[in-house]
């Protein structure tokens, strides 16, 4: 039970505390660097303990998954066998598609695989419940990566680095509702702004593309580069619904090229020309 003390002054104390919290929030939104440094400092202090904990709990997690995830693993194996059979059956079609994609990419002078990149390992979801569409990776500023850099797999864009500490980083997945990326339609060369929808594997373009632009199903999209944070020509996905009948505002649905499930490693794309002072 609470021990009420005669000196308790809850209202003034609460008001002061709320004012302090609001001040901190305001200063943070104004970009006050010491507050970011404070947060990063706390995370860096905790980081060695987290790494140790990760190492210690890895065998436990593996054992847990082996015992309690066996059925899921068996189902996944069956699914993959069916998928493999389907892929073999469609090999010729896939090759044709690949050729078409490569031809389209080469037509616009795309050299996606030429990007310098840092390979990062996925650690899992970040702490807390504020982590929808975010994942944590095992590299940070010590490895030369910075906030805003594009994160990709061999299939294409996965997201961007949202928060970078010394030896860990958070990746905001492309499906996050706050995610924005400038994209270009490879065939029509129209550009637009794609954003995350909060739905797995789906992005949406709601601005930029003209109402009368010819956009086809399965048309390939790449990052537009230019003033965007991302380098240009990173594959993003294919058009699922071009919304050709829109009268006022066009909303083009994009299927993300990169499968965000069952990922273990990602690549962080380094800028082509590093600014002076960077590693």
């Amino acid at each position: 039970m609470a021990a009420k003390r005669p000196v308790d002054r809850p209202r003034p104390t609460l008001l002061i505390i709320l004012a302090a919290a609001l001040t901190l929030l305001t200063l943070q939104f104004r970009g006050l660097q010491p507050l970011d440094a404070f947060q990063q400092g706390v995370r860096d202090i905790v980081e060695p303990v987290r790494s140790l904990s990760d190492r210690l709990t890895d065998p436990v997690q593996t054992a847990w998954n082996g015992v309690f995830g066996f059925e899921a693993l068996r189902l996944e194996n069956e699914r993959l066998e069916v998928e493999l059979a389907r892929m073999r059956g469609n090999a010729l079609t896939s090759e044709a598609d690949t050729e078409l994609l490569n031809r389209l990419l080469s037509e616009v002078d795309i050299a996606y695989s030429d990007f310098d990149a840092v390979v990062v390992r996925i650690l899992g979801q970040p702490p807390g419940n504020f982590s929808s569409h975010m994942i944590e990776v095992d590299k940070g500023t010590d490895d030369g990566i910075e906030e805003g850099m594009a994160v990709v797999t061999g299939a294409g864009l996965v997201g961007r680095l949202e928060q970078v500490d010394r030896s860990r980083s958070l990746v905001q997945l492309a499906t996050h509702p706050d995610f924005r990326v400038g994209v270009r339609l490879v065939t029509s060369q129209d550009e637009g702004l794609a954003k995350g929808t909060g739905t797995e594997g789906i992005l949406r373009i709601e601005s930029g593309v003209r109402l009368d632009a010819q956009v086809d199903n399965d048309e390939v999209l790449v990052t537009s580069g230019g003033r965007s944070l991302f380098p240009g020509d990173i594959p993003v996905g294919k058009v699922l619904d071009p919304d050709s009948d829109a009268d006022y505002r066009r909303s083009i649905i994009i299927g993300l090229a990169a499968d965000l499930e069952n990922l273990s490693f990602l690549k962080v794309v380094l800028p082509a020309e590093k600014p002076e002072g960077m590693r």
Partner: peptide, 13 residues
Amino acid sequence: DSLLSVPLGLHAL
């Protein structure tokens, strides 16, 4: 707030 990727002061508020 320091641990999570949220603005400092959100939970403190």
